[in-house]
Simulated scan of single mutants.
Amino acid sequence: MNYQNILSETENGITTITINRPSKLNALNRETIQELHNAFEEAEDSSKTKVLIITGSGEKAFVAGADISEFADFSVEEGGKLAAKGQELLFDFVANFSKPVIAAVNGFALGGGLELAMAAHFRIASDNAKMGLPEVSLGVIPGYGGTQRLPQLVGKGRAMELIMTAGMIDANQALQYGLVNHVTTPEELLEFAEKIAGKIMKNSSVAIASAIRAINANFEDGENGFEVEIEEFGNCFGTEDFKEGTQAFLEKRKADFPGK
């Protein structure tokens, strides 16, 4: 599929999706959000994709925010629809994606950019990264899941401070907060993400998909995460991956998971 605002390439089981609007610091507009949705859908359906890495083009920004010019004159109704559609198409879609999604945060990740990174299953940042949710400085709040995912990741008090001050934190502070898992140099960022992806791909993709559903259930209203874990755990016993994994363990060999 041809895209105008993103790049998508798959190699050795890893699909790397790059937001490619460097003149706009990779800001998210509606077209880019739709293209990202399409690229993730394509990766979902591809047997060649085992892990996804999402990053931004250039050295300045992962995603510097949403494209404000698109919604500066929106009404109350239009604003609500913008948030709902964006969450459905991209942010919730990524968070609940069945294959592992790693955000490789290079440079600025602000507003919708940080919200996209937080929707990924975990984050790696380059040491020049800056992160924040500055929406209140524009008279609005984060609308793509930021008020929900940031407290889950860093705690309520830190999230309140970051959102209320509209401030930014650097990569090392994000690491201290637990917002990112690792910090690397800009040159090593993608290589490091690919190294982790390689470790992930040695394991059962079916079990990983089950783990994603179980972990996410703990953060969903009306869901009992323990009950979902029990159900997903039981379901694993009916998979070919479970049979291969346990047999390989008993035979003291490396498992060759069929992904079924």
Rank of each mutant, 00 (worst) to 15 (best):
L52K: 02
E240W: 07
E223M: 13
G79Q: 10
N172A: 07
R30M: 11
S57L: 07
L250A: 13
G107S: 01
A171N: 03
I68G: 01
L189F: 09
L110D: 04
M201F: 05
L190Y: 08
T165Y: 07
S204Q: 01
A217Q: 10
G222L: 04
E115N: 14
I196F: 06
T55C: 11
L190W: 06
E11Y: 06
V136A: 05
E231H: 11
F62K: 10
G65N: 11
Q87N: 15
E35W: 01
E244G: 04
G145W: 04
S23C: 01
N172G: 10
L89S: 07
K24G: 00
F219M: 04
S126R: 01
R253D: 05
K48S: 14
E77F: 11
Y177H: 12
N38E: 11
A174V: 02
N26F: 00
K24A: 03
G234D: 11
S8R: 14
E135P: 01
V180D: 05
I14Y: 06
T49I: 06
G167F: 03
P134H: 08
F74D: 14
E135Q: 15
G198I: 09
Q176G: 00
E194F: 02
G56A: 02
M201I: 06
T185F: 08
Q4V: 05
G234C: 09
V51N: 00
K243G: 14
R213W: 00
G157Y: 07
G143T: 00
G111S: 15
N106E: 12
M160Q: 14
G132T: 06
G111E: 00
K48E: 15
E9V: 07
T10G: 06
L82S: 08
L52T: 01
A117V: 04
Y3L: 06
G198S: 13
G145K: 07
K60Y: 12
A207Y: 12
D45S: 13
L179N: 06
D256C: 04
E194D: 08
V101M: 00
T49D: 05
K202R: 14
K85R: 13
P100Y: 00
A103N: 10
I230E: 14
G155T: 11
P22D: 01
D67R: 10
A27C: 03
A66Y: 13
Y3E: 04
Q34R: 12
A104C: 11
S47R: 11
E188T: 11
N26A: 00
N181W: 06
K48F: 07
E135K: 00
P22Q: 04
I163S: 12
L133I: 08
A84Y: 09
T55G: 06
D73I: 10
G146S: 03
A248S: 15
L116A: 10
T147Y: 00
